[in-house]
Design a protein around this nucleic acid. Structure first.
Lengths: 361, 361
DNA sequence: CTGAAAGCGCTAACAA
DNA sequence: TTGTTAGCGCTTTCAG
């Protein structure tokens, strides 16, 4: 049916080995031989069967990327970068969603995967560090995200405390003093970004006003809007700035502020986290912490590549971030909503305040 | 090194065939045998080598999804649905980005793919219908998007003319008469959504005012903003509504309107296209044509499944859409920006106007 | 520089 | 119901 390597060999009047050599770019093949074989390949319309190749080579030629949900902008963007980084290593990427299903996450960890893969980039949401530690599967693994790894696998992290602190310091630098935080987890201990918020305030001798702190149930605009409503309803005097745990939540908060007749940033400045693409098109554009996703992706793929060789000690690999200042804190050209000019980040009065860059490798 | 089927068989004291039967859920296996084998699998920590299985079975167990760029909200969402639809068919999905690179698109068509796949879901951007028609690779293919297929492969399409018409009719129903269109392609002939715009106007006896029509260079917020600026600069009297070729462009247009001191929707109503998730968190929330992405994804995967069997005639498969009315045309509760209440689509005064649903299958 | 042949780990036809 | 064994298509020693 489909032409095989042997068919090409027959056609060219050579052995399979020779054809294989040509296909795989082996050096010691005469030019005449090469062109002859290539012609034969063309004539019979040969395409290598990658399943067979992988079996013979003992590798899969692909890695899996496991994320909660692909239509969340952060993961969409991250996935894009992982695809690119993997491509450079000759890997193709198979994406799987867990949708926050703990059972699916466990299945991934235990190696019950639908395909053989050379490695796993996993952004866990439900599964505990302990469960990860107990996995028996030997597939190289690298973890992303805030949830601790327990030192059982490489883990790419941005320093959320430092990032949160940078965001809030920016607001303080603007002269804001009643800074709310939306999306701090109830306990307050788990959320590293909240720690950054606290630290920044403490450094200026300010205390956390609990009426300005509100958790969100989910990472959704609706949740951010509801949380902002709650803060506005009970906090007097009202906040003059808000640090939101994600951009998505920040957009909801801005919506709430608008509906309350408050202007952003004149009345209330807003900082988000993630730098999702929409933050550049929204009105106002959104100031945000921008994790270096490309670096995260590269580090993750590099980790898997390194793990192909031998079992190294699991490491924590820091990834960089920066604060991107846009209109939700800086206004348009310093005063919001006046000039109908297109702006890009570079022309904003505050420019970009760079965060601590911890480059992997 | 890694335990193989044979190791399990040895351990359980049975043959490979029996182990294989158990693993593949073959019915005629005694219960005792089954448990014994499962225990052996557990003991040696066996995981099937899928490369080998695929080779033996003659199938790949996965399909490829080829899109321009994964961080574009439309494709992110589409990809999510494709993953889910594929999962139901026992397929895993390998995603590849072309980034609008014609060369990469051609590589995909010609079957020069990094893995063996059972099928290809392809959303072309650059490659011509003619090129698609000339492909020699036999991998089952299904096309998505507006670009014509030339009848060489199954093609899932929403009726862009009808959708555009629905969007503009909605604006007309609101009493708007000077309706701009942003993102019509220069020629005007290629763009089906523009045809819908024209049709809707014509039905009410209105003519297209060329000063109200502006193309965009790319599907970006910045482009939408620039285009809206251009229209506002030259069109007098100014438009009272805008139909944008995509949501992304619409968000840029809204930004331009705000910066010009115009209110949305009181002064200018805005309709987008694609119903990207951001549209629900933006201020104002965005009225948009919502293609039934889940249906598109299901139809695409179903097409590939059907093509596994035999070569059927290529078909055009219509997918549904609807108009989702939100604040950018309806305002908040009918009057914009007054009540700080959370709204969802269901509570909006206009509810949802449903478009023609052409369900696949 | 090229050819022959032994696997890679699993499936499935055929036997028992 | 279970065992034997010949492939699946490619890579890769090892000879030549």
């Amino acid at each position: 049916m489909k032409p095989r390597l042997q068919d090409v060999a027959d056609r060219a009047g050579v052995s399979m080995k020779t054809v294989s050599n040509v296909i795989n770019g082996y050096v010691h093949v005469s030019e005449a031989m090469r062109t002859k074989v290539l012609a034969a390949i063309e004539e019979v319309g040969y395409r290598p069967n990658l399943s067979a190749r992988n079996l013979a080579r003992g590798r899969a030629g692909m890695i899996a990327l496991v994320v909660p949900q692909l239509d969340m902008p952060y993961f969409a963007s991250l996935s894009m970068h992982v695809l690119e980084a993997a491509d450079e290593q000759g890997w193709v990427v198979l994406i799987q969603q867990t949708r926050g299903d703990a059972e699916k996450e466990r299945a991934v960890l235990s190696g019950r995967f639908a395909q053989r893969v050379d490695g796993l980039v996993f952004s866990p949401e439900r599964v505990t560090a302990e469960e990860i530690g107990q996995r028996s599967d030997r597939t190289p693994l690298v973890l992303l995200g805030e949830r601790a790894s327990g030192g059982v696998a490489d883990h790419i992290v941005v320093d959320n405390v430092a990032a949160g602190k940078l965001a809030v310091s920016h607001l303080l630098d603007l002269g804001r003093r009643r800074i709310a935080m939306i999306g701090a987890e109830s306990g307050g201990t788990v959320n590293r970004r909240f720690d950054g918020y606290r630290t920044a305030l403490a450094e200026r001798g300010l205390e956390v006003d609990p009426r300005l702190v509100e958790p969100v149930s989910r990472n959704l605009g609706e949740a951010g809007e509801a949380a902002m409503n709650a803060v506005l309803a009970r906090a007097a005097p009202r906040p003059d700035a808000v640090f939101c745990v994600t951009d998505w939540v920040a957009l909801g908060a801005i919506r709430s502020l608008h509906l309350h007749g408050l202007r952003v940033p004149e009345d209330v400045a807003v900082v988000g986290f993630d730098d999702i693409p929409y933050g550049r098109a929204s009105t106002p554009t959104l100031t945000s912490i921008s994790p270096d996703r490309a670096a995260v992706a590269r580090a993750a793929v590099a980790s898997l590549a390194a793990q192909q060789e031998d079992g190294r000690e699991p490491r924590e690999i820091p990834a960089g971030f920066e604060l991107v200042v846009r209109e939700s804190t800086a206004g348009v050209g310093g005063a919001a909503f006046v000039a109908p000019a297109a702006l890009d980040d570079a022309t904003l009065p505050f420019g970009r305040a760079r965060g601590d860059h911890h480059h992997a490798r």
